[in-house]
């Protein structure tokens, strides 16, 4: 029997193929230091600095441009809240693509953190929603538009189900992911009632000239295939005091953002002033993302 021979030959071939592809990851080759990198939550600040520096070097080399990676921690007395004015949203999807650009999100296979659905004015059932509307002009008469993204739950099911603590809630309320710790089991995708979790089905492809070089470890730094990601309220911007990209791009001013602990913040004003609702409130996920109709 020549089975042992063919088996050995086969193992050699497949072993090499498997090994390289198995460990290859980003395409930058395999390095043990990143393989044995700790969970971000368990790193000391010295370790964080070292990892951040290593990543900056790696990304800058890979994209041929300076890429900064910050690990700015959450501010004290800050919990972010987000408001979305359904009266004003015109469904133009500017936010979707601004988000893609800001956050270095995979173009192919396409990932969108924000999904805007169109519904008839009288409709509240998402099953009747149109995800792929494409008229010449928006808004269309008789419809309203509902952008849906990570709701930054205070009782997040994704964090609960993650088997490896790759997901957690930061003290400023942002549900963060350590992309280097995620094993890609996708339990969070099944657990999320808002379909906020996105999976990198292949190595994310981002044109080099479209890279946003200002990144955060828990935010828009380049990802590898096989890990989940989702809206993090542009952590790289909001931790520096700036508005998220979707807020700034919105031509209708339908997006409100601010510190829930600050009674004078825009989000608190909106909560005081309008009757807000939370999406799928009955599931007790306690979103910090509020919808309201400011007009009518």
């Amino acid at each position: 029997m020549n089975q042992p021979f063919s088996r050995r030959k086969f193992l050699k071939l497949t072993g090499a193929g498997l090994g390289s592809s198995f460990l290859g990851g980003c395409g930058n080759g395999f390095d043990w230091e990143s393989f044995f990198q700790k969970n971000f939550q368990e790193m000391t600040s010295a370790e964080k600095n070292r990892v951040v520096q290593r990543l900056e070097k790696k990304y800058s080399g890979h994209y041929g441009m300076p890429v900064s990676v910050s690990a700015t921690p959450a501010r004290e007395n800050t919990v972010f809240g987000y408001g979305l004015d359904l009266s004003l949203c015109v469904g133009c999807r500017r936010c979707v693509y601004a988000c893609v650009k800001e956050n270095n999100i995979s173009r192919d296979v396409q990932i969108h953190y924000i999904r805007v659905v169109k519904m008839a004015e009288s409709e509240r059932n998402l099953e009747k929603a149109d995800h792929y509307y494409s008229p010449a002009k928006v808004p269309e008469h008789g419809s309203y538009y509902m952008p849906i993204q990570c709701q930054q739950c205070d009782n997040p099911p994704c964090v609960k189900v993650c088997p490896v603590k790759a997901l957690w809630q930061e003290s400023d309320g942002i549900v963060a992911i350590d992309y280097d710790w995620c094993i890609g089991c996708r339990d969070c995708m099944a657990a999320c009632p808002y379909r906020a979790m996105k999976f990198n089905w292949r190595t994310p492809h981002i044109p080099k000239n479209e890279i946003n070089g200002e990144t955060h470890f828990l935010g828009n730094r380049p990802r590898v295939r096989g890990v989940v990601e989702k809206c993090h309220l542009c952590i790289q911007r909001v931790r520096e005091g700036r508005y998220p990209a979707c807020v700034e791009i919105c031509p209708a001013g339908a997006r409100k953002f601010g510190n829930l602990l600050d009674p004078a913040s825009e989000i608190r004003m909106a909560l005081n002033h309008f009757r807000t609702f939370k999406l799928k409130e009955e599931l007790n996920t306690q979103p910090k993302f509020f919808y309201f109709f400011s007009l009518g």
Binding site: V164, W181, C182
Partner: peptide, 17 residues
């Protein structure tokens, strides 16, 4: 799983189950 080589993250002591 998307990153099978990271299975050890789910183990006690060396990972964070």
């Amino acid at each position: 799983t998307g990153r099978p080589e990271r299975f050890w993250h789910s183990l006690p002591v060396i990972g964070t189950p």
